[in-house]
């Protein structure tokens, strides 16, 4: 290669790096509180925005507590997408600019599910109050997920009005994907909607509500072997709720699965996908979820 040509290539390289750099500078920063919103924003915003989801892998973003510096990064963002429904407990105590915040589930606020069994207490003269919160895995109802994606679209369009049409086009595609999932899941469960099912954790409220699942939850962790008390509890549930399958957030310990199997219930993973999946993306994970759930309805 002649010296002249390699020099030109070097310039070209520098030029490309500069272009990429200026583009990343020009991209507005969109901060999100969970992976589904990250996915929606990336699909709709694509190269027009720089989407940041700061919760570390392995943490549940719903209960994660960001550092002050991370809160500052959120404050400096051009757009903040929150899930709403009480998702991300840290939002309750963090100061963020309201004008940049989009509560993506606000429009179906009336459909929020209150968690009833968290216990109430009272103290002092102000009377009783409850620490019971709102169920927040709103996106497991795929029609709600579509509405959240629509809110993301609106937020992005407000931020970059010149790309409004592009965003809406991309949203239409995403909506199609989500509604396809919805239709498929609906078709799967339609035949035997009343089949009893178990959930390892009370996070499938919207899923159960939307698709009419007969779901009972315990409070187990996939990576922890339940204790005797928890097994006893399960058995008493099974007496009235003869479930053949338990939905897990992640793969259960083989021992747990085996013991569960012995009690007549198979294990299937329905990953809520609150944090970034190790493989695939939101859509593929949900497709796998739906496919796995299909087993329970065969």
């Amino acid at each position: 290669m002649s010296l002249k040509r390699s020099g030109m290539l070097a310039w070209l390289g520098i030029g490309l790096i500069l272009m990429a750099w200026t583009e990343s500078q020009a991209q507005p920063a969109v901060y999100v509180v969970n992976y589904p919103l990250h996915y929606f924003a990336e699909r709709i915003g694509a190269e027009q925005v720089h989407v940041v989801f700061p919760a570390p892998a392995g943490e549940d973003p719903a209960f994660w507590k960001p550092h002050v510096e991370t809160i500052a990064a959120f404050q400096a963002a051009d757009l903040i997408l929150i899930n709403g429904a009480g998702y991300a407990k840290w939002l309750k105590t963090a100061s963020l600019p309201k004008s940049k915040m989009i509560d993506t589930s606000r429009r179906f606020k009336a459909d929020y599910i209150e968690i009833q069994d968290a216990g109430t207490h009272s103290h002092g003269p102000t009377g009783e109050h409850s620490h019971a919160g709102t169920a927040f895995t709103t996106w497991l109802d795929f029609r709600q997920a579509a509405q959240q994606a629509e809110a993301v679209t609106e937020g992005l369009s407000r931020l970059l009005p010149e790309h409004k049409d592009t965003f809406e086009q991309r949203y239409a595609e995403l909506e199609q994907d989500l509604l396809a999932l919805d239709e498929r899941l609906e078709a799967i469960v339609a035949r035997q909607r009343a089949r009893p099912l178990l959930a390892s954790h009370p996070i499938y409220q919207y899923l159960a509500k939307r698709y009419g699942l007969n779901l009972q939850s315990v409070l187990w962790e996939p990576e922890v072997m339940p204790n005797d008390e928890q097994w006893d509890g399960l058995q008493s549930i099974l007496e009235t709720h003869a479930a053949a399958w338990m939905l897990w957030e992640g793969s259960p310990l083989p021992a747990s699965a085996a013991k569960l199997q012995a009690l007549g219930a198979g294990s299937l993973v329905f990953d809520p996908c609150g944090n970034t999946p190790e493989q695939g993306d939101f859509l593929s994970v949900m497709q796998q979820n739906v496919a796995r759930l299909q087993q329970a309805f065969q």
């Binding site: 002050v68 809160i71 500052a72 404050q75 105590t93 963090a94 100061s95």
Partner: peptide, 9 residues
């Protein structure tokens, strides 16, 4: 210092 980040500040 910095801007407000959480309650009580």
């Amino acid at each position: 210092g910095r801007m407000l980040a959480v309650l009580g500040e």
